[in-house]
């Protein structure tokens, strides 16, 4: 009996030590939960969630201080994925943070641009090319559609253009067939 207890205790001590060692030796850089949440967020970096970017919002969710329904660009699908990941209840997108919109990209009316560089400073992903007193333009493939460049423009020459569907981005629809009335 004593031996059995002793063996079990020894086992516990050895395994505990091994686990402790492993947790130090194989320590994961960064917080894996924050990374996982950040991977779901759309990286628009628009700040509509009330945090200065997607990562800070991910940190707040991980810390439990934020709801999962504050990101309009992520939309319903994003909320569902977060709910799945965190085992929380699904919630409708919170209206105070905004509404889900179709993806758009910013467009600068190049005839109006005065080259003030204010939009460049606002763009979180450096998607605007230009220099002082030169016409500016947006690299559409890099633009996340965050709209942060709209307010600083003194001549209101930036507007959002919805991204149109093309033959390459078109998706097959879910196969649902029309329900026919029985004759």
């Amino acid at each position: 009996m004593i031996e059995a207890v002793f063996v079990m205790a020894l086992g516990a001590v050895v395994l505990g030590a091994a686990l402790g060692y492993a947790s130090i030796k194989f320590k994961v850089e960064g917080d894996p939960l924050v990374e996982k949440i950040d991977a779901i967020l759309p990286q628009t970096q628009c700040g509509q969630c009330g945090y200065p970017g997607c990562k800070p919002y991910a940190q707040a969710i991980a810390a439990g201080s934020a709801e999962i329904n504050c990101c309009p660009p992520g939309g319903e699908e994003g909320i569902r994925k977060l709910a799945d990941l965190l085992g929380r209840e699904f919630k409708e997108l919170s209206a105070e943070h905004g509404v889900e919109k179709a993806k758009s990209v910013a467009f600068i009316d190049e005839n109006l641009c005065i080259g003030c560089t204010l939009c460049i400073q606002a763009c979180p992903v450096d998607a605007i090319v230009g220099a002082a007193k030169q016409m500016h333009t947006i690299v559409a493939t890099q633009c996340t559609g965050c709209e942060l460049c709209l307010p600083p423009c003194p001549v209101d020459c930036i507007f959002m253009v919805p991204v149109a569907e093309t033959v390459e981005t078109w998706k097959w629809t879910y196969p649902i067939f029309e329900v026919k009335r029985a004759a």
């Binding site: 759309p42 990286q43 997607c54 992903v125 998607a127 890099q142 981005t169 097959w172 879910y174 196969p175």
Partner: peptide, 25 residues
């Protein structure tokens, strides 16, 4: 299958776009 394939492609594209945005940010 066509539906699933095009959804998977779209998601992959979205993910690449998000990853680019993250690294640029």
């Amino acid at each position: 299958y066509r539906y699933a394939k095009s959804e998977i492609w779209a998601r992959e594209n979205e993910k690449t776009a998000a990853d680019t945005a993250r690294s640029r940010y």
